[in-house]
Design a protein around this nucleic acid. Sequence first.
DNA 1: GCATTTATTTGCGTATACATTAAAGAATGC
DNA 2: GCATTCTTTAATGTATACGCAAATAAATGC
Lengths: 225, 225
Amino acid sequence: MKDQDAKTLSNTQRAVRDLRQMILSGELAAGTDHLESELAETLGMSRTPIREAALMLESKGLLEMRPRKGVRILPVSSDDMREIYDILTELESLAAQRAAEAGYCEDELAVLAGSIAKMDQAIEAEDLEAWAEADELFHQELVRLGGNKRVEAIVAMMSDQVRRARATTLFIRPLPVKSNEDHRVVFQAISEGRPDAARERHREHRLQAQAMLCGILEKHRLNSL
Amino acid sequence: MKDQDAKTLSNTQRAVRDLRQMILSGELAAGTDHLESELAETLGMSRTPIREAALMLESKGLLEMRPRKGVRILPVSSDDMREIYDILTELESLAAQRAAEAGYCEDELAVLAGSIAKMDQAIEAEDLEAWAEADELFHQELVRLGGNKRVEAIVAMMSDQVRRARATTLFIRPLPVKSNEDHRVVFQAISEGRPDAARERHREHRLQAQAMLCGILEKHRLNSL
DNA sequence: GCATTTATTTGCGTATACATTAAAGAATGC
DNA sequence: GCATTCTTTAATGTATACGCAAATAAATGC
């Protein structure tokens, strides 16, 4: 672990990983500013790798570098959420379609099936954190099965941008029972090789998630997560 | 011009701009490797801004930084082209739909209309370069009208990745007469506020472009543009 | 007192230096 | 002659230094 950390990874890569983690966990709160030198000290390295990491995270939409004002952790508004979910809807639906077209066999779909099982258990136990984790796995695996690396990268990027918001909304939203039902139907369509069904059902699934989430954000006036 | 260059832009920004241009123009050919120090000398600056620029271009998919091997200009294969066009198809269709929903008035659609006119003229004159330029403007403006900044950024990124390939295929492919017809239909649908029609027609338009381009690439064994 | 100008500070952009380490080349043993 | 080890080279990753410009504080004029 520490080996991997110190040996194979460059400081720049560690900085990317650690800063990302700190942003997703909220340790670096949305909307806050941080000097390059502060971050450098925090992570125990010089400004150079910090700058390089910040540049990368900037192009991933997690922060913004503003001369003299420091690195700003970007907040996510409900408008941002709409933009992001629009993209997730389109690209994940495509992935679902492609996955269905690919004609995967049962054990190639094992991870996807597993994630659904985990979500069911989590709902049973009313463990929202576990559900969220399994949900994330489902979407990630779905996109992987879609077989388009660029889609995978874009979806991962968009997911990062909303992860903070999910932590907040998770406990406000209704129990995601309907969501699980959707996942099952999408899975069925994929395993039976029905591309149109997979695509359409997943699309509806995402549109509903978007409406629900944006609804909550606006209702609670949560405008910079 | 030179003012903008020297005064307001940082060396890093200039490096991003210039390297991008050199890649798109083919001055830095696909598949070639370049040392950071060479690039630094070429652009008349130190390695620091070059590295920062390279990092940014790496996350835009134009190059890859490989330790000890230098900066590699990424080639685009026909598989890459498929991935990219799949994404362009989904996101631009969404943009077309949203543009139609937005109910833009005539002069908000002037640029779009203008680009179509330019394409018609270009076809008339059989000026493929001019056509390509106008085509690019059409797609860019369409996405802008879609009103999703993230979609705009992603589409721009994907467009950059295929631009090199277009220069090659432009003179192999048939005269894009059908393409112009498509643009007109999409425009009509947008200006008349028919989202579904705009979306579907644009989708078909892109699917055909994809089939045509990938077909050409495979037929001519052009596999690293 | 308030506005305007002048110091001062401070953070960034960038050049530069250097240690590290992978790759290439030379030398050795068989 | 071929494989293997040792040298050497060279490119990167990172620390550091420094000039410059922007933001802040101080000082001056009114």
